[in-house]
Structure formats: C-alpha cells, structure tokens
C-alpha cells in the first residue's frame, strides 16, 4: 500500500472509530442482559405453545407441503388408470345407453366374429356402443381407443371364457391381449372401424 493510500485509509479508520465510539454510548445505555432474558423467555413461551410451531413460517410451509404431497400420493395410489376408468365409465353408463343404433359402424369387423355368428356380433355391437358413449363422455385420445375397446371386449368375453373353462375348453386366441392388440393395430378393418367411430363421435 502506498503512503498516500495509507493516509487515506487512516482517515477512514478515524471515521470508523468515531462511529464506534458514538454507537458504544448508545449500546451501553440499553440494558442488554435484561432485554435478552425477556426475549429468551418469550421465545420459550412460543415454542411450548401448541400452535406456536405452526405459526412459524418454515414449519408451517413444510407441514403444508407434506399435506399436499400426501394427498397427491394417495390420489395416485387410489386412482385408476385411464383404461380402467374407461371401462368403469362404460359400466356406469351402460344402462343409460339408449337408441344407439345410429352410431353402429356400417362395416362388420371380422376378427371377433364368433362361430356362434349372430350372437357374437350382437355382443360386439353392444360393447362398441358402450365404448362410443364412454368416449363421448371421457376425454380419451385416439391411441387409447383400440386398447379400451379391446379391454371392454375382454371383460365381456370373460363370462364366455369362464364358460369355456367350465367346459374344459381352451381359451380362444383372440383373448390374448398382447397378441391381439398388435393385430388390432395392423388390421385394416379395425382401422376403418375406429376412423368411423371417431367420425361418429364428432357428429354426436
């Protein structure tokens, strides 16, 4: 440090010294120990009060975050997937579905045509009707449509499957979800069917 700068700094030091002297007079006037004791007692009081903990900002905020997170986790655990939701909605509005003939696809899908001809097809129509109504009610994307329809069919077919098992017969191939969903995606008939479903939905 140069001599000039040392001199400049000594002036600054003197100003700081004056400030400290003035401040010390003020500090000595205040009864530090008594005030500290009072504050300490007040602090203890607020700590022991049952609501005191929650009145402090940080614990209150942490508590709120825990409540919100717990609610979200609970909802996540208890909520059903979109697919199950779709099926649930189908089941719920089943009885409300009336006069849905106009929404039927004009082309008959071939994959699910059972050997028991008409009965199987009628069953399919009913399932598709319900899906259409559900799609109208729920905000389900196009990608989810074939999966939901398949699950609905699968659920409906379960009764038939139980019957088959009862009689000791094999599970039909079309009830294998993994295999059939791939077929669904590649099957032109279903692509046509779904595009008709979506079109009908838009009209509705």
């Amino acid at each position: 440090m140069t001599e000039n700068k040392r001199k400049d700094f000594s002036d600054i030091k003197n100003l700081i010294k004056k400030e400290k002297q003035k401040a010390l007079v003020f500090f000595k006037r205040t009864d530090f120990a008594t005030r500290l004791e009072k504050r300490s007692q007040l602090d203890e009081k607020s700590k022991t009060s049952s609501l005191g903990f929650f009145l402090r900002p940080l614990p209150a905020a942490a508590f709120l975050v825990i409540i919100i997170l717990s609610t979200l986790i609970y909802k996540q655990l208890t909520s059903t997937s979109t697919y199950e939701k779709g099926i649930e909605s189908l089941a719920q509005i089943m009885n409300q579905t009336t006069n849905m003939e106009s929404l039927l696809p004009t082309r008959k899908p071939q994959v699910y045509e059972l050997s028991d001809g008409e009965k199987g097809f009628a069953h399919l129509e009913w399932s598709i009707q319900r899906v259409l109504y559900c799609l109208h009610r729920e905000s389900i994307t196009d990608e989810q449509i074939p999966i939901i329809i398949f699950k609905v069919l699968q659920k409906n077919e379960k009764k038939d499957l139980d019957k088959l098992n009862f009689y000791g017969l094999e599970e039909p191939a079309y009830l294998n979800y993994e295999k059939e969903i791939q077929k669904l995606r590649n099957n032109n008939n279903y692509n046509l069917l779904f595009s008709k479903i979506i079109k009908k939905l838009q009209e509705v």
């Binding site: 400030e19 400290k20 401040a23 010390l24 003020f26 500090f27 205040t30 530090f32 005030r35 504050r39």
Partner: peptide
Amino acid sequence: FFICLGYTKNPCDADDLTQ
C-alpha cells in the same frame, strides 16, 4: 456489537442483531 455495526446502517439495528 461492533461487527454488527459494520454490517448494519445504525446502532439500533446493530443492537437488535447482537440480541
């Protein structure tokens, strides 16, 4: 107290901070 005085603008704040 003096260290607090260095960080604060006035002796009142320094006193509170010391507490």
